[in-house]
Nucleic acid binder design. Sequence first.
DNA 1: GTTCCGCATGAATCGATAG
DNA 2: ACTATCGATTCATGCGGAA
Lengths: 294, 294
Amino acid sequence: MKEIKTELFFGDCTKELKKLPDNSIDLIVTSPPYADQRKSTYGGIHPNKYVNWFMPISKELLRVLKPTGTFILNIKEKVVDGERSTYVMELVLEMRKQGWFWTEEFIWHKKNSFPGKWSNRFRDSWERLLQFNKAKQFNMYQDAVKVPIGDWAKSRLKNLSTTDKKRDNAKNGSGFGKNVSNWLGKDTVYPTNVLHLATECNNKNHSAAFPEELPEWFINLFTTEYDTVLDPFAGSGTTLFVAKRMARNSVGIEIVPEYYDMIKEKLEIESQYILFEERADYGKNKLTKSNSIR
Amino acid sequence: MKEIKTELFFGDCTKELKKLPDNSIDLIVTSPPYADQRKSTYGGIHPNKYVNWFMPISKELLRVLKPTGTFILNIKEKVVDGERSTYVMELVLEMRKQGWFWTEEFIWHKKNSFPGKWSNRFRDSWERLLQFNKAKQFNMYQDAVKVPIGDWAKSRLKNLSTTDKKRDNAKNGSGFGKNVSNWLGKDTVYPTNVLHLATECNNKNHSAAFPEELPEWFINLFTTEYDTVLDPFAGSGTTLFVAKRMARNSVGIEIVPEYYDMIKEKLEIESQYILFEERADYGKNKLTKSNSIR
DNA sequence: GTTCCGCATGAATCGATAG
DNA sequence: ACTATCGATTCATGCGGAA
């Protein structure tokens, strides 16, 4: 019976990250305050200073991440004086100098984007999900996020086209012909690098940066049970709660007292709930869950 | 009765662009050869040299564009040694130094992306549509691209994966079903900065870089009738033919003789067709169409 | 006229092999 | 060591002919 741990730190993440050991994190999923956004809570970082502000943090993240781990950065540049600001692009270039590999850029297509109308632009309905890695070889569990195949398959895949057969028969016998059996029973396919998710708009107490499906998808893709997930800008704690539910250890850091308290309280409630109700396990093993709040 | 002109130049666009007068173009829509792609036809530009290769071209484009005009650049970085290449980001930064404003980045979500499976990444199903402007005030005709609500819902429903449907139904009342009823009253809505289009891969004679809907959408959005559209990498001529059909003047440049000849021939055929058949007008005015091929 | 099915192919990427 | 070529993998679309 293994134990799932959910740790929460209070304070500035540049400092708090130093408390974490090297190579201890399997996945980082976070949505840092965007430049000049959420001024009321984070004070707002000027677009020109954003890269300099983030570099010490990404340096620590690079240190704590396992060589097989992945860093998913949810970010989008804001409009400054009618132009898209370039700090995200500069950030990527600087992080590569720091030693990060920029493996991929996923697109989060927000199904219900923020309403509004402007004379010179349409509603912004997508955000960047930048994937960084410490090494070229990293853990990826693709089967965990397979999706149902498109409707076309039902009618089309019944009889495999002769071209497809020919195509692979021409190649030395190790191609499609061999795999026909895989295709006939096929009902799921691998996804692409575009994610379709709605923004979460149910909770009014906090500004949830992303819906639960978002960390859930990446946790499925890049970790297995008992791995450790980190969110250095925990905010409302979405990443932590999802990780916990999925039987992953997690570490969160939050600098805003109100958010910190909210997460803490919710964690404590959940712990008691588990004690009294003997909640069903997420995975196949019996689990006990504990929170360590500092 | 105004006349629509379709001009076609043969040669290297850096040189040919010099023949165009200052401030004469309302919209540039183009898809240059991506780094190291299309080697067989365009020779291929190494990722490291891409920015230097493009700078003289973008300088000329800045010159010929009207202050109220817009430049739409379709591009995507390829993977180099397991990482996304950074030349597109560097390109944006350099073009801003050149005087361009980077107004917006649209996403082209390709419904049918190239197949394949790799251990470290999923299929790439999106491309960038970078919007650059010469001035902060530019022409934009948003009403021209409003989406009919019925068609939108229809195509949207058709394309929704079963997961999406399930997910939406699972949400208590804020899901798809409820929203559909809200749309019934309205007839059109403004789109967002994400475009859903399939690539055209069925044409046997040539490979068009993008589907007709792509230039069509931007021509509607950024020009009116009798405006002038430029594509310095005409390729199969999609932009030119769409512009012509929409009663916009257009200028194309193409360096590959086979492509140039193909466009030329198609333009001539269309002209004759118009003479004999008295084709229905695109817009409300009577039009004659002429091609000037050099 | 619809619907259905056969068919070709697309700005891809990785790893192994060859010069 | 470094680059060039080749084989293997895989999903969705629209056209055109057939039912």
